Simulated scan of single mutants.
Amino acid sequence: MYGKVKKLVSGLCLVAMFMLTFAQAAFASDQPVQLISANLYIYKFGYVGFSGKVDVSNLSPQKNVTIHYTPGDGTWYDTDASYEGPAEAGHEKWGFSISTNSMNNTHPELANAETIQFAIKYEVNGQTYWDNNNGHNYSVSRYTESSTILGKPNVLRSYDEISQDTFLGGVYVKNLGFSKQVKIKYTTDNWATTKEADASFSMPANSDDSVEAWHFTVDHIAPSVSQIKYAISYTVNGQTYWDNNYGQNYTVSR
């Protein structure tokens, strides 16, 4: 009897250990805070800017998102991110943007920054979560006039506009393979009909070629079209990734 009880207890312990291990693994795979994108850029008037987007799990209405960064001067600085809107189910998008300004000398630490290293701190429910790029910190460096990195997404809209009879825009993609295809799926009549347009490679988006900038141009948009809705697909290594604005699609108006 003792042996049976001992085996039963041992079995329960193994089950408990397995459940604990599984719970730990499940928690480890859940990332409450993740970088979406970050950008280091130089304005045409010489101002330097550092901005980005962050994805957080909506664990409570009360939360703080902070960017912890250093421009390489030996000092770490903090800047707050602010809520921008809902993301995918149960998530929110937050954004941050700081820059130098010759009039009031804001953020002078950015003026001579060649590379900015940073991590993201998320405080909620008495807990602090970090996205520090798996312990390596994120890094964005000057590259021509602008340098962009992507975190969570593999494809991300950059800009869009309708200019006279032309619909044009830009896309960022992670450089996951040499052969890739970027397409725009769009509608001019609220999805009654759809069309596709190919995007073309424009240039590397940063110094290490981890992100590429692509662009698209659609001519002969009818004067009667006042609004275009669209989503972006990115196919590489046999996989297709989408940026459809968290299921809402993008909308651009004249």
Rank of each mutant, 00 (worst) to 15 (best):
T100A: 04
S97F: 13
A111P: 03
D73C: 12
K63H: 15
F45Q: 15
P61N: 08
E88G: 00
F50C: 02
F45K: 14
H91I: 09
S51I: 01
T100M: 01
G95F: 00
K53W: 00
G49M: 02
L59Y: 15
Y47W: 14
T100F: 08
Y83D: 06
S102V: 03
K63F: 15
V54D: 05
G49H: 06
K63G: 10
F50H: 03
N64L: 13
N104T: 08
W76N: 09
T106I: 02
N58Y: 10
V65A: 06
A89R: 08
A87G: 15
G49R: 03
D78Q: 10
K93N: 11
T70K: 04
S102G: 12
V56G: 06
S60I: 09
S82D: 08
S82A: 04
H91A: 09
T79V: 08
Y43E: 13
P108G: 09
Y83G: 06
K93F: 04
L40F: 04
A89Q: 11
S82G: 10
V54L: 09
W94G: 07
P61Y: 06
L40Y: 01
K53E: 12
T66P: 09
G74H: 01
K53F: 06
V56L: 10
K53V: 09
G90W: 02
G95W: 01
W76S: 03
I42E: 13
E109K: 00
K63P: 02
G49Q: 04
Y77W: 11
Y69P: 05
S102R: 10
T106C: 04
W76K: 02
F45R: 14
A38S: 15
N64K: 14
N101M: 07
V65C: 03
E84M: 11
L40R: 04
E84P: 01
G95E: 02
S60E: 06
N58E: 13
A87L: 11
N39D: 13
L110M: 05
T70H: 02
A113L: 00
D55N: 15
G90Y: 07
A113Y: 00
Q62H: 04
L40V: 09
A38Y: 01
Q62V: 11
G46A: 12
K93R: 13
T100E: 03
G72H: 08
G49T: 05
M103K: 09
I42W: 05
N64A: 12
P61W: 14
D73F: 12
G90P: 00
K44R: 13
E88R: 09
N64W: 02
K44N: 15
H68E: 08
Y41T: 09
N105D: 15
S57M: 10
